[in-house]
Design a protein around this nucleic acid. Structure first.
Lengths: 341, 341
DNA sequence: ACTGTTTCCGGCAACGTTTCCGGTAACGTT
DNA sequence: AACGTTACCGGAAACGTTGCCGGAAACAGT
């Protein structure tokens, strides 16, 4: 930004008042004459004055910026929660600064540094799939940076967290597969160090157990959110003589990879293999057949995370970490068999 | 950010040097003794010192932040160009601040104000579909804010622009429909005030003309990027006695709406109706049938936009607006009929 | 011993705000 | 007439950097 921008100084001089008065007028403080205030506001408008927030931030020791870091945003999930975040953040007078770590721990560290250097007032964070030590995050927290976690939750970190009821969601999904006649159900799983992976796995396991299904550990494939792995592992499953007749995927992108693989093998969904995803990315409705999926309230996750963070920022003294668990619902489409009876 | 962070002052005192020296060490200036530099760097590391960039920005009159504003990022297009932007921006030492206008002119204005208030060094901008006056943008430019435009381009604005060869892309697409035997080709069009809409429309029209097709203006439906409209208009087309046998959509989200509508009417793609999209959002490969589409180099668009912007920021004196037009390629999948012969 | 040059460092003024601490004038109250 | 109160305003110090300018010391060349 090259061209000199007008400052409160310019306004003050032109109106023969002090900069204090101008400042008072601009952020409508009480101690000011309505007339002078109007004059200042008019001139400010006429000059198209835009306050220099970086100066204000320095002085106030507060940037009114909320940082958001997500592993990626080419799939629909994260953009949608960011939508929710922006909604409540903007309403509360905060700007939102989005960064993506591209599932890389190094970039995550680097971005985190940039965030604290930029003195964001708080951070909403979904860690990388490869984030396995948390020193950088703890260090930032110790510096006083409020962080709320979502989606990629990990027990080792403390702070507010918003998550969904992964266990029940998974349980219901697998139960539905069982009730529609599936007998060998495989799981394309997420990373086990995250609750998102562990809880969905446990829901899967417990649903099998509840229906007296034998446990076959070779049926859980750890795709761990890495692109392309679901496709490979699905192929492995299809090549087995005791091929499964259903797949429960840890999320929709994983499910869609599986779907493509299944169809490439000339198998039909759901007759040969039933398929359930998790997340309900919008385009899970576009694929053929439309994907049965465990829907989470994506938008609400973002809103809630922002609310918790803002509360922590504004009233830090009475802050205690809060863990919020939102409900999921199973949306049945055509990638699973119809319920008989 | 509550807890007091260490400053160069703390380092200076503890080491009995001046803050100037600390500053020199930190941004490795030449005039400094390697030993003192090492001592400072060590202590900085030990204290986990993170420079206060807002102070530095104020002093340097430069934030090293590039703003990006897009109408939305729940579809894959914009996230992907942002990826390209971040790549070159980060490599050049810039942070990226992303905002979305949600296709609302008011939000666009508001966000733009926030951007100039935050004193971003430059802006990469795709305007809203409802942006029809440009005063706010021109005002920002007059203040010295470098802006490069992409995707949503408009003749009334000047500045660097990166776009794709919409005309040729559209022409080739429609020509392909003709060559595969389609005889009544409709166009689900974009807004005509944007070159993206106008050029694709012209490509469509000229392709028809080049093959001596009669012009039927009732076959171009102005969907203008508004959600749901493509579906409605496709239904109108399908209800006509002289139903078209092909649709050329202004972009992929529009195409997918049309696809759903067609299938709901029990018609087959491409036999009853062939369909071509534009943009190649990744999930256009997931739908059934996979979408024939005009592919644009999305990633490259972002990279190029960032390069142009950074050049303008760093060497403003020798700046002249640059308009870059990237090539598209037609990727043929199964939503169009096979080429005979 | 003198100048000139190099190497390193400190002082200090900015950058544009906010905000505390007063101060003055006008007014009402005793 | 003296005082307290109110309403408004100005001065000035911060916030944490950067970067110019100058200065001291050390060293080289005459």
């Amino acid at each position: 930004m090259r061209g000199k921008q007008p400052t409160i100084w310019d306004i003050a001089i032109k109106l023969n008042v002090s900069i204090s008065t101008v400042s008072r007028a601009l952020r409508n403080a009480p101690d000011i004459n309505p007339e002078t205030k109007k004059a200042i506001l008019d001139l400010a408008h006429q000059l198209d004055y835009q306050p220099n927030t970086v100066a204000a931030s320095l002085r106030k020791n507060k940037t009114d910026i909320i940082g958001v870091m997500v592993p990626e945003f080419v799939h629909a999930y994260f953009p949608n929660v960011i939508l929710g975040i922006q909604e409540v953040a903007n309403a509360a007078g905060y700007k939102v600064m989005v960064m993506q770590s591209s599932e890389s721990l190094d970039i995550e560290k680097h971005n985190l540094q940039a965030m604290v250097s930029s003195r964001v007032d708080g951070l909403i964070l979904a860690i990388t799939r490869e984030t396995n030590d948390y020193d950088h995050i703890v260090a930032a927290q110790r510096k006083g940076l409020p962080i709320v976690f979502f989606n990629r939750i990990v027990d080792e970190l403390q702070g507010s967290k918003v998550m969904v009821d992964d266990y029940t969601g998974a349980f219901t999904a697998v139960q539905h597969l069982i009730q529609t006649g599936c007998r060998r159900i495989a799981h394309l799983a997420g990373p086990e160090n995250m609750t998102i992976g562990r809880n969905r796995l446990n829901g899967y396991l417990d649903a099998l157990k509840a229906h007296q299904f034998p446990l076959d550990e070779t049926l859980v494939m750890h795709c761990d959110f890495v692109e392309g792995r679901a496709r490979k592992y699905t192929q492995l499953l299809l090549d087995r003589p005791d091929r499964p007749d259903a797949l429960f995927a840890v999320n929709d992108p994983t499910a869609i990879e599986a779907l493509i693989c299944i169809q490439e093998n000339g198998l039909s969904i759901p007759n040969d293999i039933a398929l359930i995803g998790f997340s309900n990315a919008p385009h899970s409705t576009f694929v053929t057949p439309p994907l049965t999926s465990v829907v989470q309230p994506i938008h609400e996750i973002g809103q809630l995370a922002a609310q918790l963070l803002i509360r922590q920022i504004t009233t830090p003294q009475q802050f205690t970490p809060e863990i919020r668990i939102l409900d999921t619902t199973l949306v049945i489409r055509q990638s699973t068999r119809p319920l008989v009876g």
